[in-house]
C-alpha cells in the first residue's frame, strides 16, 4: 500500500508540471464553464416564461465524461511508455516494489489528478444549488458524481494498461483513444445494427449505456457498478501483465 502511495504521489505531482495536463484541465474547465453558463441562462429564460423545470448537474457531468473520452488518452499516454523510453522503468522494476503496485500507483495518481479537476466543477453544483429552490436533487447529484468517478477510474485504468504495452507515447495515445472511441460511440451503433443477444453484448460493453443512461439518471444499479469495476480490473491487469511480459522478453 505504501509503495502504491509513493508511486501515486510522484505521478500526481508530475501532472502539475506537465503542459499536457494543463491543456487537458483547461479544455475540460473551459468547455464546462461555457456549457454551465448556457444551461443557467436557458433555465432562467424558461423560468421567466413560467417554466417550472429546475436544472440539475447531470448535463455538466455528462460533458465531463464525454470530454474524458478524448482527454484521458493524453493523460495516460506517457504514464508507463515514457518510463520505458527514458529508462526509468528499469529503476522502478529493480526497486523493491511489485509490478501491480507500480500499475495501481500510476492509475491512482492519474485518478487523483482527474478528481482534482472534478473538484473544481463542484462549484457549478454549488452555484446551481443556490439558484434553485429548494435546491437541486441531492440523490441524483450523488448518483451522477459516483458515475463520473467510476467512469474516470475505468478510462484511466484502461489508459494506464495500454500505456504499459507501448514504448512510444503517441502509439499509446492512439491505441487508447481507439479503444475509447469503440467503447463510447461504436458499441451503441453496433448494438442498433444487430438483433438479439448480439445487441445485448454490444449494449453491455457500451460505456455510455452504463453512465449516461444509468448512473447519470439517478439510478444506482449493481450491474453498472460491476461493469465499471470490471473495466478497472481489466485495465490494471493488462498493465501488470504488460510489465511482466516486458521482463520476460
Amino acid at each position: 500500500m505504501r509503495n502504491i502511495w509513493t508511486i501515486a504521489k510522484r505521478e500526481y505531482n508530475h501532472y502539475f508540471i506537465s503542459p499536457i495536463a494543463y491543456v487537458v484541465a483547461f479544455i475540460i474547465l473551459f468547455t464546462e464553464g461555457i456549457y454551465f453558463t448556457y444551461i443557467i441562462s436557458f433555465y432562467s429564460q424558461q423560468a421567466l416564461f413560467g417554466g417550472m423545470q429546475a436544472p440539475d448537474i447531470t448535463p455538466i457531468n455528462w460533458l465531463f465524461v464525454f470530454l474524458l473520452v478524448f482527454t484521458t488518452p493524453a493523460i495516460t499516454m506517457r504514464s508507463l511508455s515514457d518510463e520505458a523510453r527514458t529508462g526509468t522503468l528499469e529503476l522502478l522494476l529493480t526497486a523493491p516494489i511489485r509490478d501491480y503496485e507500480l500499475i495501481i500507483g500510476k492509475w491512482l495518481g492519474g485518478l487523483l489528478f482527474v478528481l482534482t479537476i472534478l473538484a473544481v466543477t463542484l462549484v457549478y453544483a454549488i452555484i446551481m444549488n443556490s439558484l434553485v429552490t429548494p435546491g437541486i436533487d441531492q440523490q441524483l447529484m450523488i448518483s451522477s458524481y459516483l458515475g463520473v468517478i467510476l467512469a474516470a477510474a475505468a478510462l484511466l485504468a484502461l489508459g494506464v494498461g495500454i500505456s504499459a504495452i507501448f514504448t512510444n507515447q503517441i502509439a499509446a495515445f492512439f491505441a487508447t483513444f481507439g479503444l475509447f472511441f469503440i467503447l463510447w460511440f461504436m458499441m451503441g451503433i453496433f448494438g442498433n445494427l444487430v438483433q438479439g443477444s448480439g445487441a445485448q453484448v454490444f449494449q453491455y460493453l457500451n460505456i455510455s449505456a452504463h453512465f449516461s443512461d444509468a448512473l447519470n439518471t439517478g439510478s444506482i444499479k449493481l450491474s453498472d457498478l460491476v461493469y465499471f469495476l470490471s473495466l478497472i480490473a481489466l485495465g490494471l491487469f493488462t498493465g501488470t501483465t504488460a510489465v511482466e511480459i516486458r521482463r520476460w522478453r
Binding site: 527514458t86 529508462g87 526509468t88 528499469e90 529493480t94 526497486a95 523493491p96
Partner: peptide, 14 residues
C-alpha cells in the same frame, strides 16, 4: 532488490 543498489547503463533520472 532490497539489498542491491543498481546503476543501469542509461542512468535512470527524472
Amino acid at each position: 532488490r532490497r539489498r542491491v543498489g543498481y546503476l543501469p547503463e542509461t542512468v535512470p533520472l527524472y
